[in-house]
Design a protein around this nucleic acid. Sequence first.
DNA 1: CTTCGTTCCTGTACGC
DNA 2: TGCGTACAGGAACGAA
Length: 298
Amino acid sequence: MPELPEVEVVRAGLAPAVTGSVFRSVQVLDTRSLKRHDARRGDFVGLLEGATVLEIKRRGKFLWMPLAHAEGLGNGDALVVHLGMSGQVLLRETDAPDDRHLRVRLVTEMPDGKPVDVRFVDQRIFGSMAVDRLVEGIGGLVPAQAAHIAADPLEADFDDDAFVTALRKRRTGIKRALLDQGLISGIGNIYADESLWRARLHYDRPTDALTAAKARELLGHVRDVLGQALAEGGTSFDAQYVNVNGQAGYFEHSLNAYGRQGEACARCGATLRRESFMNRGSHFCPICQRMPRTRSAK
DNA sequence: CTTCGTTCCTGTACGC
DNA sequence: TGCGTACAGGAACGAA
């Protein structure tokens, strides 16, 4: 499942291949992958063909490429990519056979290079591609469809104090808050569970009962785990995540909680558990991450 | 306003 | 063997 580290690996892999390139032809093989494209703004293919990629940016799990047209048409637009659950962006030779679950093919050409395919492959179709307008947001221009998400903890515009304050104002469980992209972006199920294991916090611990110091400590663990996962090329837990060359990351071997139910906790030796929460699995140590005794409900 | 449940989608892993 | 079903989950959406 691509989360911030995996999306950043993809961004970094795409940057040298697409920055300054021009989209020569675009093929949409499955229109369901364009569900976040607003057709009233124009045809997806028409908006892209002939456009130059100025740069490639990321916030949280969103990727986008600001575009420029020689005619000035569509300037201020960006190609926005979200990988969802199973999305991949692959760089392929133009004559390579179609990948399974290929949804969109963009043929790019560098100023002095041969054409290269940028392929959007997505088994479960929770991901999407769209051409969207850029609007003023946190730290500069962001796609309109990503303007509601908060900065991610690895970017300079993330405000630690504001996060701690906002987190403690919430009246919900800590994991639900970590997964709320409007509060802090980039965290998904894997890194939420890993961060909470490191912070020794139960996933349903009430946010309004956290001390500011504990909230700050948790944020430190979030940064550590995201940074380490990025350094190891991301987590390829179910083989859905690979980099632009189709290679898996190594962080799966460093997971302490996610997917390790039934195994011994690396810290205390207790048997790790998995419980269903928010329609997804939560992995935790029942000894290290106890739910504090609930204050009597009146 | 905030909080939370539902829905989208397909491949895989099961039980019978 | 084959069929049906549960499960994996990011984010938009609507309800309360």
